[in-house]
Simulated assay, not measured.
Amino acid sequence: MLLAKTDKARTAIQNRDAGLSAQDRHILIVSNGQRSLNDIVSMLGPATLAPIDRLLREGYLQAAAGERGADQVAGAAGQGMGALLRASRDLATRVQERAQAAIEAATAAPAATAPPAPTGTLAEQVAALPPPPPVPRVGPRRSTAAAKMYMLDMLQLQRSVEAATLKVAIQSSSSGDEVLASLVESLRHLRSVATESYYTRVTTRLGEVLPEEFVPRLAASLRIDATACSAA
């Protein structure tokens, strides 16, 4: 989604409105209708996500002319964000249930008979101890590499120049922020060319393989898209 400043923003910049911070003015200045949300966040840093969200809600920013219909985009983004958040909550619930089961199993052994006193040297006593139980795996393996491979597979199905460009961006990304930015941009492309149900399935699966620390940031990007389109 391309971001553009509104007439209200232009007036506020000219009059140096005291209600706008230096960061707000910087965001408005670079929002010229030719840069996407991802472009602006890449330029100014992830800390601008919340201010951009507020500026959209307050009418200083809007989607640039020529973007898709607000209702259609907001609906798809909202469904994807909801599915992503549900997947995150389900993972947390499964982790809590498994931890509780482990605690109950550890405390369920009868305490009526005391274990025999250990004999032998300390080394012999240690050697006689049973091995610790394996740590159960919870859900699919999460990593940025897994998230990159999954999105590359999804883009492989799209026969277009833009999909090929996004594949190169994903492959060349190295840091966590670069990977997240390329994944968000790829999701926006899929939302523009695929059905809402397909976009929702891809978003949900991506949330299951992406490292947990990136899931809230991915959801925030989708929430900003939905808010921007509703305000346009």
Rank of each mutant, 00 (worst) to 15 (best):
R159D: 15
V138F: 03
V179H: 09
E124R: 05
G120P: 08
V179W: 10
M149G: 12
V179D: 14
L180Q: 15
A181F: 11
R159A: 14
P130L: 07
P131F: 03
I170Y: 05
V126S: 01
P130E: 11
S175M: 04
A147E: 05
E178L: 11
P132C: 05
A163C: 05
P133S: 07
Y150V: 05
A102G: 12
P116V: 10
T144Q: 07
V126A: 09
A163R: 07
T144K: 06
M151E: 07
A145F: 10
A147L: 01
D153C: 03
P134I: 00
L157G: 04
V95Y: 01
R137P: 00
V168N: 09
A128Y: 08
V161S: 06
R137Q: 13
V95M: 07
R137T: 12
A181I: 11
L155Y: 10
A128Q: 13
S172V: 02
A102P: 03
S175L: 04
A123C: 00
T113R: 11
K148Q: 13
G120T: 05
A163L: 02
P133A: 12
A128L: 05
M154N: 02
S173F: 10
V179E: 14
P134L: 03
P133I: 02
A114D: 07
R159V: 07
V168C: 00
